[in-house]
């Protein structure tokens, strides 16, 4: 079946019941999204589907035909990090880093819709994503910084 990932069409040879996460990591070598709980409860696997933050571990690819999927790799790269990535680096928001890709994707979904999101909105939006290292305050600072960057540079669109 066909999937559109990071703006590119892909022919996927997999059981249509396969969770998106396995296709991203196993077939497309897009390894930013992580396997955490596998139950849609921790957020490490978060990607964007038509701009909405989605748990890729519980989303079968058969539900995704014709929808636009964006992973962290679709936002920016090592050489050209996206604002959300620059902000997370600047705030050193990662401890072990396992949750961070999911955190960035959920924050991206929020800021794409509302670059002026306040602290309460950021906290509420990120609630589905867990971090076990306890870097929550740095993550919040990073999202606020990204919001400022997106407001000033209007660089919020994924590339």
């Amino acid at each position: 079946m066909k999937l559109n990932v990071n703006g590119q069409p892909h022919d996927i040879d997999a059981d249509p019941r396969t969770p998106l996460l396995y296709v991203l990591r196993g077939d497309l070598q897009l390894n930013a999204a992580k396997f955490g709980c596998g139950l849609g409860q921790c957020g490490a696997c978060t990607v964007l589907v038509d701009g909405e933050a989605t748990f890729s571990c519980v989303t079968p690819i058969l539900a995704l035909e014709g929808k636009g999927i964006v992973t962290l790799e679709g936002l920016g790269s090592n050489d050209h990090p996206a604002p959300i990535q620059r902000a997370f680096i600047a705030e050193q928001a990662a401890q072990c880093g396992y949750c961070i890709a999911g955190m960035m994707m959920r924050a991206q979904a929020l800021l794409q819709k509302n670059p002026h999101a306040g602290d309460a909105e950021i906290r509420a939006a990120l609630e589905p994503n867990l971090c076990r290292c306890g870097t929550h305050m740095r993550i919040l600072r990073a999202v606020r910084r990204a919001a400022q960057m997106m407001q000033t540079a209007q660089a919020g669109e994924p590339q």
Binding site: L39, G40, E52
Partner: peptide, 22 residues
């Protein structure tokens, strides 16, 4: 919208599918 987990207790949980299913 799913079923949110209760704090510090076993409770029914379920992820919501608002974003992935049209």
């Amino acid at each position: 919208y799913g079923l949110r987990a209760a704090e510090a207790a076993r409770s029914p949980i379920m992820p919501g599918f608002a974003a992935s299913l049209n």
